[in-house]
Nucleic acid binder design. Structure first.
Lengths: 226, 226
DNA sequence: AAGGGCTACTTTGTTGACAATACATGCGCT
DNA sequence: AGCGCATGTATTGTCAACAAAGTAGCCCTT
């Protein structure tokens, strides 16, 4: 039961974090109907802050609420997951373009170092899909931040990634092609280092397009049942 | 003082709507620090539901909250407004593409009818920027919905448009080029009617790009001071 | 026996009071 | 006289009790 690690903020923030990670990690299954009192006892808080957190989570689309009828975790269908990747394609394409224009040299160096560490992780723990997924998240996270586009980063990091990660945890997918993904990441960083925004956008779009096709294929093969 | 017109939902929803429209209409100025009790008396509700609504609004980026220090309406700088349009470019481009692939014939007919009505409005109330802005919103709203991409529509209608409209109300800008915008709208609908998703995406991106350039120019001219 | 309506219960929505924290004002010190 | 500290106030965060709405189970009716 994930307790709040950092209680620096307010009680409602704590609740928000707890429930969000619980949803992402799959501890709260999609479609599961959850009662407020149950959540309260589970995360050691009262209904006031909880309800505030539920409001935030609802507006982020992680759970749906029917008045007087309770709240249940959102269940994303396979087609909706693919739609999510369509959105990522265009938004992260833009992020890559703007990152190429605006990242500092230090940030780019850090980004390259990140990739090196990912490469080591892949070689060491070969097949360990989990770490690859985490590394992938780190990569995209840095580019979103590097775009210096506040709202864009907010939408990517605050909305989309949580929904995508929700499925990563549950299916531990998106791996399977670690080396290929790493190569694509390297080329994107190269384009960013050369300040070629147009190329960075193109490569990022193609990268996510490939990831989407990969998921599409797995769904057709019946590996992913959602 | 905008009272809740439809009280079918819950009290917190009511609060959410009230405050959101108040922000969008400029009744609550950006950067303005607002106390919870003041809001309560203003909208006739208690602090419980209010705080829930504030949480939702914060997570949507319409206001910022510092623990124990109160909440203030978000103030978007000129550069951030332009960044918003960059995001719209790619997201609405995608929406147009998917709308071309998925809208029903009826929806397309309605869309065309909408444009006809806009044309009449422009001719009648020439220079009345307000109606043009509303018509523009209607057009983009229909395409976002027509994309059949739930999350995309949610992000456009629930996040971006409110922030953009916030400035439309305050500056009554985005007009100035009503006929040109209408022509661009017509071409986009044509592409959609022909089920040419690629063209629809291209035209939509160019349309919003032009709108952004228009705002950029006005800012340089000093017409828009933000 | 099956369907509809009613009643009781559970769960959510709301309220008002209580506790904790930040901001401001005024005092003392340098 | 200016700066820093301490206290007081106002505002936010939290809590527990109350009211309303939905759900489920039971009985009655057809």
């Amino acid at each position: 039961m994930a307790e709040a690690t950092l209680q620096s903020q307010t009680r409602a923030d704590e609740a928000f974090d707890c429930i969000q990670t619980a949803i992402v990690k799959g501890e709260l299954a999609p479609g599961e109907k959850i009662g407020e009192v149950e959540l309260c006892s589970r995360f050691n808080l009262t209904r006031g802050p909880l309800r505030e957190a539920l409001g935030r989570l609802e507006s982020r689309g992680l759970l749906v609420r029917r008045p007087h009828a309770g709240v249940k975790v959102v269940s994303v269908s396979a087609s909706e997951l693919l739609e999510l990747y369509r959105i990522r394609e265009v938004m992260e394409g833009l992020a890559a373009r703007q990152a190429a224009e605006r990242m500092t040299d230090e940030e780019i160096a850090e980004l390259q170092a990140t990739l090196d560490s990912h490469e080591r992780m892949i070689e060491e723990a070969q097949g360990q899909a989990y770490y690859q997924a985490e590394g992938d998240y780190d990569f995209h996270h840095r580019i979103a931040t590097g775009s210096r586009n506040t709202k864009l980063a907010q939408m990517l990091l605050g909305d989309l990634y949580y929904m995508v990660r929700m499925y990563r945890y549950r299916l531990s997918t998106s791996a399977g092609r670690p080396h290929m993904a790493l190569g694509e990441h390297r080329r994107i960083v190269e384009a960013i280092a050369q300040r070629d925004g147009e190329l960075a956008e193109f490569l990022m779009k193609r990268h996510i397009h490939a990831a989407r096709k990969n998921i599409e294929k797995k769904i057709e093969e019946g590996v992913l049942t959602i």
